[in-house]
Design a protein around this nucleic acid. Structure first.
Length: 804
DNA sequence: AGCACGCCGACT
DNA sequence: GTCGGCGTGCTC
């Protein structure tokens, strides 16, 4: 009989990264199970923390006295064997704490919060009482209290005059409604019914209904009221008479708005057929075969996914479908629900925390067998997976940019291996990593080159903005694009205009002295926001008034430069006064539901022009759109990032796919200052294969991924010298520990060196094989514990998404 | 994270 | 001489 629980405590430090042993008191003996959350005493005093049971043993190598587990928080484990193994692997590969990984995998509701309370233990002087307990009652002890109060209370605590109590708060509250069940036998109810039939017909109705109910299953009061055609007063009266009992009944919050009309599988073309049968063979054979579905926009990838999922479901297995957060629109979700109905669970940030938890539990209980969600849905507690799909696999949002710095693709591949099921990666423009792995035979490549409706890809025109600037005055629109817009307005067709990056470089500069208004906290220029008439910092949110006089030389010639969506909208409106324009960027979609509202309006042709940032490039499908304009194709090309070309190519290809989705042919205009750049040239030709070959060559030349692996280390501190010094020490450790084949870039200040009052220094290691890499990084991680006390943060990011 | 122990400066 | 600063170690 297991006596000891191995607990990972909820204290994210290096020293508590391995489980601690706790005694299991006999009264909890039959409750404690591996994978459950518990409350345990931790440290001196009465402090308690939550933890997760990761093992049950009857011996321990710890030779002190074991403390007992205080309470169990769950009725059933919240982490199954697979997810526990996954947490260990995640911690190992991302250099994050085990408990941090577990927290990331669980829904927010299951994260506990700790609270401290202070109360007097003995008579305090009236003075002390008045100072510290003005309400005469125990009070909460938070770190929001002012220093003097904290100091005073701690002093009283040392004197034993007040006591601290600790509480672990579990927020996993489930929603309940009043449920009822019969309290008497059917026979007895029948007797009473006969008695009351004449004088109390409503009570008789209820009694009749109660006889149809099972005595051990609660039914919602509201359901009974409706079914028996009675009022709730009748139920209350019946409860008083002891005919029935009321009890809280657990219900799900309902994230399904309206029922979706079911759809049937569509007819597949030859390419799709090949793809589906290859994937279903792997599903059938329980093979960990992974696929890359490379399909141009409109080639029907989604239908391939849906039919592959259907195969897994037919076998009584489950499916996980990952999509980028931005593509997780109601239209997209409805498409899946239309095929699989109530079996679908959706996990995304648009749901309330409670709804997210409910969906999680539906999955955990096996009530939902198809899971659709963004990055973190890769941790969904689906059992018996038969297939994992990751759409738009090249999207960088699949990588989490905080600890644990995991890539959902890697997690998906791990789960595929664990469950002996295929993983399907899909994209029109696969990441170089994925395409290269397919070339090496690690993934089976399935190409969908044909558009399902046989519509030709749109004609793409490149507009050389250098020429435009020579011939016309400066402006955001070229003559050819303006003409194209006018044509569409005349024909009552719609168009999408994309501006690369939000509020891109609409900064304020003095034309006399060149002074640029910068954020006092961060090292970047402030962006002009015309809606609030302020200058804003996009990193820390700092806001200040728009200057009318240069703070440096007092010239009045301080003007706005560059282009933001708002400014473009104004210019566009001036050019086409009657055009109806919808703007979609981070600012106009901040409010919940705004995103969908804008798209719906556009879909109903309430506007002619949709103007926006990157977010309009993904997955929109509007048949009436015949023109796509990219106003500034090259802003990303200038970034000091080895993936700049890849990003630009992907973005241009994606956005071009938005034109001419239906019967009307589409046209694309790309305005650029680098018309000869291969990323732009090949995007024009929509030639992914040539882009792949060209870019692979560049990566090879520069010793970049996928030819090399990469790890990025960052040190940050309020004091620049401290951050720099830490980074130099880290580099010294790296140089000593690693082979001379490893390429070490840096240390360098980050491209944006100061963010939120902190300075960032970084180093990037490029390597092919480094046996000692892991131990060296572990050692750096260990060493970073000490200066962390003084505000020095060291992060390790394996395979960073950008080197900036 | 959060607490106690322990070693140095300004007070009764 | 003590009170209290925060630097360091430890929590089953």
């Amino acid at each position: 009989m297991a006596q000891i629980g191995q607990i990972l405590v909820d204290v994210p430090t290096m020293q508590t990264n391995d489980p601690y042993s706790y005694a299991i008191p006999s009264k909890l003996e039959h409750q404690v199970q591996v994978g459950m959350r518990v409350i345990v005493p931790f440290g001196r005093g009465h402090r308690v923390v939550s933890g997760v049971v990761v093992g049950l043993t009857d011996a321990t190598s710890f030779d002190g006295e074991l403390k007992p587990i205080q309470a169990v928080l769950d009725l059933a484990p919240v982490l199954n064997d697979e997810l526990r193994a996954l947490a260990d692997w995640l911690a190992d590969t991302t250099y994050a704490f085990r408990i941090t990984c577990i927290q990331t995998m669980l829904p927010n509701q299951l994260k506990t919060q700790t609270e401290r309370q202070v109360q007097p233990t003995q008579t305090l002087t009236p003075n002390e009482m008045a100072t510290y307990f003005p309400d005469g009652a125990p009070r909460e002890f938070t770190d929001k209290l002012d220093d003097a109060t904290v100091a005073g209370l701690l002093k009283l605590q040392r004197a034993g005059k007040v006591e601290m109590t600790y509480q672990v708060k579990d927020r996993s509250a489930v929603k309940t409604t009043t449920g009822i069940k019969p309290a008497l036998t059917t026979i007895k109810l029948r007797e009473i019914q006969d008695e009351v039939t004449k004088r109390a017909p409503k009570q008789a109705d209820l009694l009749a209904y109660l006889q149809t109910m099972s005595p051990d299953r609660l039914i919602a009061q509201s359901t009974v009221v409706k079914a028996a055609h009675i009022s709730s007063a009748v139920i209350t009266a019946a409860a008083d008479k002891g005919w029935l009992t009321k009890a809280p009944l657990e219900v799900y919050r309902d994230p399904f708005q309206q029922p979706v009309k079911p759809t049937q599988p569509l007819h597949l073309n030859a390419e799709q057929q090949v793809a589906v049968s290859a994937i279903s063979n792997a599903v059938d054979g329980h093979q960990t075969e992974n696929f890359l579905v490379e399909g141009v926009t409109g080639s029907g990838k989604t239908e391939v996914y849906l039919q592959s999922i259907a195969i897994a479901l037919q076998q009584g297995r489950t499916a996980l479908m990952l999509v980028p957060e931005i593509a997780l629109t109601p239209q997209m979700v409805n498409r899946v629900k239309a095929r699989f109905g109530q079996r679908v669970a959706v996990l995304h940030s648009g749901l309330s925390k409670g709804e997210q938890y409910d969906e999680w539990r539906r999955i955990d209980r096996g009530e939902a067998t198809v899971v659709v969600g963004a990055r973190s849905a890769v941790f969904a507690p689906v059992k018996n997976l038969g297939i994992i799909i990751m759409d738009e696999e090249h999207e960088t949002s699949y990588k989490q940019d905080e600890n644990p710095r995991y890539h959902a693709r890697d997690v998906a591949l791990w789960r595929g291996r664990y469950n002996d099921c295929p993983v399907v990666l899909g994209s029109a423009t696969p990441s170089l990593e994925t395409r290269a792995r397919a070339a090496k035979g690690l993934y089976t490549r399935l190409v969908l080159a044909k558009r399902v409706n046989d519509h030709p890809l749109p004609a793409v025109h490149i507009v050389d903005m250098r020429e435009e600037l020579k011939q016309h005055s400066e402006g955001d629109f070229s003559e050819s694009l303006l003409t194209a817009i006018q044509t569409r307005l005349d024909r009552k067709e719609q168009m999408v205009l994309m501006l690369n990056r939000r509020g891109y470089s609409s900064f304020v500069m003095c034309r006399d002295c060149g002074f640029v208004l910068k954020c006092p906290n961060c090292d970047i220029s402030l962006t002009l926001h015309m809606d609030t008439h302020t200058m804003k910092c996009h990193y820390c949110g700092h806001e200040e008034a728009i200057p009318h006089v240069c703070p440096n030389c007092h010239s009045r010639k301080i003007r706005y430069y560059g282009t933001g969506t708002q400014k473009v909208e104004e210019a566009l409106q001036k050019e086409f006064p009657t055009a109806r324009i919808l703007r979609m960027d981070v600012d106009s979609t901040r409010k919940k539901g705004a995103h969908e509202r804008i798209l719906r309006q556009f879909g109903q042709h309430q506007a002619d022009i949709l103007l926006g940032t990157q977010m309009i490039a993904k997955g929109l499908d509007f048949p009436n759109v015949t023109l796509v304009g990219v106003l500034n194709a090259d802003t990303a090309l200038g970034l000091p990032d080895f993936r700049a070309s890849e990003r630009t190519f992907q973005l241009l290809t994606q956005v071009s796919g938005r034109a001419g989705r239906a019967a009307k042919p589409g046209e694309v205009y790309i305005q650029t200052f680098n018309p000869d750049h291969y990323a732009i040239q090949l995007a024009q030709q929509q030639d992914y294969e040539r882009f792949f070959v060209t870019e692979m060559h560049m990566r090879h030349q520069g010793s970049y991924p996928p030819y090399y692996f990469a790890v990025q280390l960052t040190a940050s501190h309020e004091d620049e010298a401290t951050a720099a010094k830490a980074m130099y020490q880290i580099v010294a450790a790296l140089k000593q520990g690693l082979s001379d084949k490893a390429i070490i870039l840096g240390p360098t200040p980050k491209a944006i060196a100061r963010v939120k009052r902190k300075y960032y220094y970084q180093v990037v290691i490029k390597y092919k094989q480094e046996a000692k890499l892991k131990p060296v990084l572990e050692q750096i991680r260990q060493a970073a514990q000490i200066p962390a006390r003084h505000g020095l943060t060291v992060t390790i990011d394996p395979e960073p998404m950008n080197f900036m």
